[in-house]
Design a protein around this nucleic acid. Structure first.
Lengths: 343, 343
DNA sequence: AGACAAAATGATTGCGCTGTCATATCGGGT
DNA sequence: ACCCGATATGACAGCGCAATCATTTTGTCT
């Protein structure tokens, strides 16, 4: 009885397929990786052998031999945040039916964790990296600058980006919201923000700037927390805001969860929106438009950011240097609905 | 000038570290994988050499040599669905600060894609697998049964599970909702459901059963769609329901997005909730309790499912056969709030 | 002091694939 | 018939690590 050389769970290898097909191992490898350079005849034979044996390449061996993987690293600050859920969706859409697969790293809004994840991902020799912030530690940034693979930074965009970037001007987006509120005639706007990561802080600064320019800035009306954002937190923050500054006539929320929470709290208190209190949201996730009253919001192109980021990355992996437009500004859109109105 | 044998981007290898530390390569390997079997002295030297050279192990080489990886595959039917976002969070919490990392596969509610992903993941020799359904294709199920790693099925639990399972009785959960609605005195309940995957269909069957038992089943009040769930879809489905069956006095929604949408649509139409229309939701994501009126819901232990699933998996990877309770029923909880009330 | 088990360390080999370079085969132009 | 470049195929080595088994060192007991 012919004994198998190995004991169990043995998958066929390239060599097995080669033997079956009557060609050399390297021809099998080529048939799989770049069929176009193999003759019709050889390809047929190999493909049949592959099918017959149920061969699947071993990614580990491939990675070791070629010194590169098909992994795309995606670093996000949060899995909770609906914003990144949309980005994620865009990325996954773009990566499906390619040979690549995405690996998510969640750094929980900690730049130090992010640095650790960058190290970790890099040790896997990824094909490319997508990172969600511009606020790496110096060491983290250095690692990315020297990374032997393309890197796309998402959410914001700018010349100081490391390699490529897709995003929009977050500050301008918040300014648009603040201007809109002012133009509606609200004179005592508040600002609600949870999870004060660097980006949230910059947005707050942009709000302050416009509010001051319109002579309607009052620090008492700026309520923030370092805790995560949620609908409940939105209610809570509005409660605090109204306790501290009952004269408040509008509120800009740093994301939709907070806005929905603020709206619900207002409704509970019988505060008329938009008459007594205007509410302007940020991001505009799907639910925002369906609230009653529907939420005015600055819509951000999250899904499109994911799509474009992965597209750029794949193009650049395919042919390094091929991507011409390395910094894409997707813009934002102020969508005026029912929660704000001229007064 | 001493020429380096390799050209660029060269990371130090085990051998480099070994040379630096004055030990053999395998001792370095052991120091990293199981420090406890290495002498204090050797460990010190190795650790210093690792630090000095900035050594990081190459996962590909490790995978190839050991025939196993630190990848945990997680198959989910959707990334959109908030339900899985919570599960995901639980899983990531459990995997942090271990040597494992999670790889997500999204099969978009397609059993065929799921089978493909199972194949794909298995080819990577994962340390373990978490799958979100009980509805694999026969081939997919067979692959999982023969998988050379532990497998946890989540969301539902039962004896027919492949290896391990964590979940709750989805049918009983829906029955509880239906019973609650009946007990409140609603007599003409409807049922709203999007994305009719097998699980959603089973839940619908459970609703039918209880409705029939309470003599309040009318097929005209069952509104479904194969499209994805969303708040907008909830509004739309309630609209359809009221058009087809204006007598409807309550509605059970197959998830929270639909329930919030239904609630908003009811508010738009000046339908009093819970007086004219009772609404009962499923899953109970955070926002549900903050709506006005707050939504009654069957709360499902999504995050805990993620946590327990990864914990079981890691325990089983650590020591195969170690996990005693291989099927965990986490139960559900009916949380009565304002959107339903006795009448 | 000697004997022996236990603990610590090392040498060798090979995991399955791809990079590199060499060789074979083919088709056409003169 | 010849040569040439283009196309197709193959041989070989080695990627970086861990399994295996052999060997050395250490500690303990009589």
């Amino acid at each position: 009885m012919p004994r198998k050389s190995k004991t169990q769970s043995d998958r066929p290898t390239l060599v097995d397929v080669a033997r079956e097909a009557g060609v050399s191992a390297i021809t099998v490898s080529r048939t799989i990786r770049s069929p176009e350079i193999v003759s019709e005849r050889a390809r047929r034979k190999v493909e049949e052998a592959v099918r017959k044996l149920g061969y699947t390449p071993d990614p580990a061996a491939s990675a070791l031999a070629s010194r590169s993987t098909s992994t795309i690293g995606l670093l996000v600050p949060s899995l909770t945040n609906n914003v990144f859920a949309d980005v994620l969706r865009g990325v996954y859409e773009g990566v499906e039916s390619t040979r690549f697969f995405v690996q998510i790293g969640n750094y929980r809004y900690s730049a130090l964790s992010e640095e650790g994840l960058i190290r970790n991902f890099l040790s896997q020799r990824p094909a490319g990296l997508i990172v969600s912030s511009m606020d790496q530690t110096p060491a983290g940034r250095k690692l990315l600058e020297e990374a032997p693979c393309p890197v796309v930074q998402i959410m914001e965009t700018g010349a100081d980006a490391i390699d490529m970037s897709v995003g929009f001007d977050q500050l301008e987006a918040v300014r648009a919201a603040a201007r809109h509120v002012a133009e509606c005639g609200y004179r005592r706007p508040g600002f609600l923000s949870a999870r004060m990561d660097p980006r949230a802080q910059r947005r707050l600064a942009a709000f302050r700037e416009v509010a001051a320019a319109n002579d309607m800035l009052d620090e008492a009306r700026i309520i923030t927390t370092s805790q995560p954002s949620s609908v409940g937190m939105g209610r809570h923050l509005l409660e605090q805001l109204l306790a501290r500054a009952p004269e408040t006539d509008a509120v800009i929320c740093n994301n939709d969860d907070l806005a929905v929470g603020a709206l619900m709290e207002a409704i509970r208190r019988n505060i008329a929106v938009p008459e007594q209190l205007g509410i302007c949201s940020y991001n505009d996730i799907e639910m925002a438009r369906h609230m009653v009253p529907a939420l005015t919001a600055v819509a951000t192109p999250r899904r499109e950011i994911g799509r474009r980021a992965i597209a750029m990355l794949l193009a650049e992996i395919e042919a390094p240097g091929a991507v011409r437009e390395r910094h894409i500004d997707l813009g934002y859109e102020l969508v005026v609905r029912e929660s704000t109105a001229p007064r």
